[in-house]
C-alpha cells in the first residue's frame, strides 16, 4: 500500500511541469484567435450580469443589490460546471497523447479544474468592481470565502473524475451532463431568491452541496458576515465523498480506457 502511495507521489513530482503546461494550454487555447482574448474572462460575467439584472431585478425587487447577488452565485456555478464539463471532455479529447505516451490521466481532470479556477479568479475582479460601484462594504469575511471556493474545487475534481471515467465508456454521458447542468442552474437560487421555492420542493436545495456553497459565498461577499459552520461542513463532506468515489473509479477502470477510445 505504502509503495503505491510513494509511486503516486513520484509520479506527481515528475509530472508537475506537465500539469502547469496543461493549465497554461487550456487557458491559452480558450482565447486563441479571439481579438479581445483574455478580456472575455471579464466581459462574460459582466454581460451575463447586465442581462440578468435588466430582466429580473424588478421581478425580484426584494433582493438587495441584485447584480452582486447574481454574480456571487453565478461565479461558483460556472466554476463547478465549467471545470467538471471540461474535465469530462478532456479525458476523451486528450486520447491521442495518452494512447501513445504514458501520462497519469488524473492530470487532465486537475488541469481542467485549475484552468477554470484561473478564469474564476479573473472574474472575481469583476465582482469586486461591481461591489465597489454598488457601495457594498468590503469586510474581512471576504478572505473566508477561500474555504467554500476550495471545497468547490474539490467537489469539481471529484465529479470530473466520475463523469470523465463514465464518458470514456459511454459517450452519452456528455449529452446527459449538458441537460443536467441546465437543470442544476434552474434548481439553484442563482438568479432568483431562495424563498420562492415552495416548502414541499425545498429538498432540491437541502440535498445540493452547491446550494450551501452559494450561500457561503453570498454571506462573505454580499452580506459581510461569516457563514454558519453547518453550511460549510455539509458540502465539505460531500466533496470528499465525491473525490474518493472519483479516485476509486479512475483507479479501477483507467487501464481499460485505451480499449474504448
Amino acid at each position: 500500500m505504502s509503495e503505491i502511495q510513494i509511486k503516486g507521489l513520484n509520479d506527481f513530482n515528475k509530472y508537475k511541469s506537465l500539469l502547469s503546461e496543461l493549465v497554461r494550454k487550456d487557458v491559452k487555447i480558450k482565447y486563441r484567435n479571439s481579438v479581445l482574448g483574455v478580456l472575455w474572462s471579464f466581459l462574460d460575467p459582466l454581460l451575463r450580469m447586465v442581462v440578468m439584472t435588466i430582466i429580473f431585478s424588478t421581478l425580484f425587487h426584494r433582493v438587495q443589490n441584485y447584480p452582486v447577488y447574481y454574480l456571487s452565485g453565478q461565479l461558483i456555478y460556472s466554476l463547478f460546471v465549467g471545470g467538471s464539463s471540461q474535465a469530462m471532455r478532456s479525458m476523451v479529447s486528450s486520447a491521442t497523447i495518452w494512447k501513445s505516451i504514458y501520462v497519469p490521466k488524473y492530470l487532465y481532470v486537475l488541469s481542467a479544474v485549475l484552468s477554470n479556477f484561473v478564469t474564476f479568479s479573473l472574474s472575481l475582479i469583476v465582482l469586486f468592481g461591481i461591489m465597489f460601484v454598488t457601495n457594498v462594504h468590503f469586510t474581512v469575511y471576504i478572505i473566508f470565502a477561500s474555504l467554500p471556493v476550495l471545497i468547490t474545487l474539490v467537489l469539481t475534481t471529484g465529479v470530473g473524475l466520475i463523469i470523465g471515467t463514465l464518458n470514456i465508456f459511454f459517450r452519452d454521458v456528455e449529452h446527459l451532463y449538458n441537460v443536467f447542468t441546465l437543470l442544476l442552474m434552474y434548481s439553484l437560487p442563482i438568479f432568483y431568491p431562495e424563498d420562492i421555492i415552495p416548502a414541499s420542493f425545498k429538498f432540491i436545495h437541502t440535498y445540493n452541496p452547491l446550494f450551501y456553497l452559494l450561500k457561503c459565498m453570498r454571506d462573505c461577499f454580499l452580506y459581510g458576515k461569516l457563514y454558519s459552520l453547518p453550511d460549510l461542513i455539509f458540502p465539505a463532506i460531500a466533496a470528499v465523498v465525491f473525490l474518493i468515489i472519483g479516485i476509486f473509479m479512475l483507479k479501477r477502470y483507467q487501464d481499460r480506457f485505451i480499449l474504448y477510445v
Binding site: K14, S17, L18, E21, L22, K25, S100, I101
Partner: peptide, 30 residues
C-alpha cells in the same frame, strides 16, 4: 516513445509551444 506521428502534440499549438508541451509529457520542465 514515438508511437505515432506527432504523439504528444496539440494541433492548435504552434511548434514552439509544442516543444514545451511535449517535453513536459516526457517529464522535462520548461
Amino acid at each position: 516513445p514515438l508511437l505515432s506521428l506527432g504523439s504528444g502534440f496539440d494541433n492548435n499549438y504552434t511548434g514552439r509551444e509544442n516543444i514545451f508541451l511535449n517535453g513536459a509529457v516526457l517529464g522535462h520542465s520548461r
